[in-house]
Design a protein around this nucleic acid. Structure first.
Lengths: 244, 244
DNA sequence: ATACCACACTTGTTTAAACAAGTCAAGAGA
DNA sequence: TCTCTTGACTTGTTTAAACAAGTGTGGTAT
């Protein structure tokens, strides 16, 4: 459970917005009022509000207040966003997750793979391919490359359930940053073979590198999704003036 | 030009990273050292670093320091990310932008459109369809809906160049937050007709709502991209503990 | 009525300081 | 040699206060 004040306040306000206590276009109470309510300084309130802004819940307006802009999205898709494991996403989307390991290999990174994954040449890695299903329909083809030195003891059994759960609970690793690129590509024969693509001849692809709290990139991932079950959510905040 | 200290520091550090003064996996100087260098308090330094973290340039490691994780991406695609106008993106991707207005209409939001766009029923809007080209190849089909009351004076001539430029420079509007969803869809006959899709029968779609600094949603957008010219970049930072 | 100004609010930026907590290396003690 | 502790560093959280700047209201003088 969160022990940090700003996080408690953030979660509290977030739930109030999601439950409709504060409705879209409403102003939430001012920072001064909230700091009295939550028994803390304005700084701590501002930090909680900052998180809400970054997640697209509210929008601050100079001189006026902080306005709710949260709009629940239609859940026709399987929505991806933030840093989540497949199991977590599945649960949030209220679908039953399933996993089948297609390949589990241990290999050494060569020149070409190094450029693609960001791992150093010569690094020892686990190379895993898995098919993920939602409500028993195979919809996602996952290719994972894990740095062995940071993920010791990884094996096929673990790959069959949840690798992230193993990393976080058993190895005590903390996942922090994820750089991702979203594209769409023509389906490969492998996609067509293993996924229920129906009539689709293309897939949505998330390619990304993930870092742990020690600042080490421990993962490279490529997730190939059936398009009608994929949507990626994002909130961008424009900081004043250009970025350069 | 930025007058805020934290922004000057942010831009300065960002450029040092992009130019390779601080290389990947390097630690940048500690917050205390930087605060002396830049003649400010640690708080201001932390704020600049926070921005770098959110844009995927660095990663802070508790007790150790702040590490560079920036990795220049391969520019095979047309990369979208952050809040940018089409003209800005084109310039950043070093391509010549072009625009053709297919439709410019003024209409009133009805029930169905309200659910899709987030505008109130009965609101007066501009409805615009445009084909965007990069280096003279038509690659993006843009559908924009602008709230008339917030974007007065919009016309076909402006739509032909840069609407965002008009809003920011002439109307003095500040664009702040953008909620977007990225998906891929089968190409419609319109896509096929107006875009150079080559053999592709699908498009990448960015759907989004944009807010100005007054907290008013003034735009709804749908951008349909040729897939091989599209990539969406994202950095996610996992805040400790679950979001609820 | 209208234009203007003062005032009470709001959020935005910056400084300052204290303490918590994680890392790492050097040195003491076995 | 090995283990453990200490201390100096790092980032993380919170408090406190001052001033800047934008918004809106209400009153006053025209």
């Amino acid at each position: 459970m969160p022990r940090e004040k700003y996080r408690e306040i953030y979660v509290d306000l977030k739930e109030k917005i999601e439950q409709g206590d504060y409705k879209e276009s409403d102003m939430i109470p001012s920072e001064n009022i909230l700091s009295k309510e939550y028994q803390c300084t304005r700084n701590t309130i501002r930090r909680a509000i900052r998180e809400l802004i970054h997640r697209g819940y509210v929008q601050s307006v100079h001189g006026k207040g902080v306005q709710v802009i949260y709009h629940p999205i239609e859940q026709a898709h399987f929505t991806v966003g933030g840093i989540e494991s497949f199991a977590e996403s599945a649960r949030r989307n209220k679908k039953k997750p399933g996993t089948a390991v297609m390949q589990f290999a241990e290999l050494t990174v060569d020149d070409r793979m190094s450029r693609r994954t960001g791992f150093h040449e010569g690094a020892e890695v686990y190379y895993i391919q898995r098919v993920r299903s939602l409500d028993d329909v195979p919809l996602i083809y996952d290719i994972n490359v894990f740095l062995k030195s940071e993920t010791p003891g990884l094996n096929e059994t673990i790959a069959n359930s949840s690798i992230y759960k193993y990393l976080e609970d058993d190895l005590g690793m903390q996942i922090t940053t994820s750089n991702r690129i979203i594209t769409a590509e023509l389906a490969t024969p492998i996609d067509t073979k293993y996924l229920a693509l129906d009539d689709y001849d293309f897939v949505c692809v998330i390619t990304g590198r993930t870092f742990n709290s020690k600042g080490i990139q421990f993962e490279y991932t490529q997730s190939r999704h059936r398009p009608d079950y994929f949507s990626f959510q994002d909130t961008a905040v424009r900081t004043k003036y250009e970025d350069g």
